[in-house]
């Protein structure tokens, strides 16, 4: 990993410390600063309220020229998070051809928070969940809350 990437990650982390983003906790390991563990609280106004979701952010060696890879380590019933052991996220911002170096991790995390409040139907990675969200909101909310109880407490 280039010195520039390390420096930038360090700066981003310092920024996070000086101005801690609400509703999340960042675990930073100086030994391996390319892998952040973030604990995101389910936003109060969302169906995920009360849940705590562990996220993993992996910075590529080419960061910030390549996007970080974000994945949910806590299972979550959400159209934009893959329902498998990877928990990968479908986020336009994080796609290789849409990523811009000035984007910051905090912005990504804030975007994830807004996605928890309102899923993005057009960028769904789980079509069946997206469909349920669209067609049968009650059932979707029930399932999502159920999963929060089961996995995210």
């Amino acid at each position: 990993m280039s010195a520039g990437a390390k420096k930038r990650i360090m700066k981003e982390y310092t920024e996070c410390m000086n101005d801690p983003p609400t509703g999340m906790k960042i675990n930073f390991n100086e030994q391996n600063m390319t892998k952040w563990e973030v604990l995101v609280d389910g936003p109060e106004q969302s169906i995920y309220a009360g849940g705590h979701f562990k996220l993993e952010i992996n910075f590529p060696n080419e960061y910030p020229f390549k996007p970080p890879v974000v994945s949910f380590k806590t299972k979550i019933y959400h159209p934009n998070v893959s329902n498998d052991d990877k928990g990968s996220m479908c986020l336009g911002l994080l796609r290789a051809d849409e990523w811009k170096p000035p984007n910051k991790v905090v912005a990504v995390l804030r975007l994830i928070q807004t996605l928890l409040i309102e899923p993005n139907q057009d960028d769904a990675i789980e079509p069946s969940i997206a469909n349920e969200y669209k067609e049968n909101r009650k059932e979707f909310e029930k399932n999502a809350k159920d999963w929060v109880k089961r996995y995210a407490k």
Binding site: K7, R8, P102
Partner: peptide, 12 residues
């Protein structure tokens, strides 16, 4: 206005 700016790539 803030009399400070950074290169948005390296954040320096």
């Amino acid at each position: 206005a803030e009399h400070r700016a950074e290169c948005s790539i390296c954040m320096d």
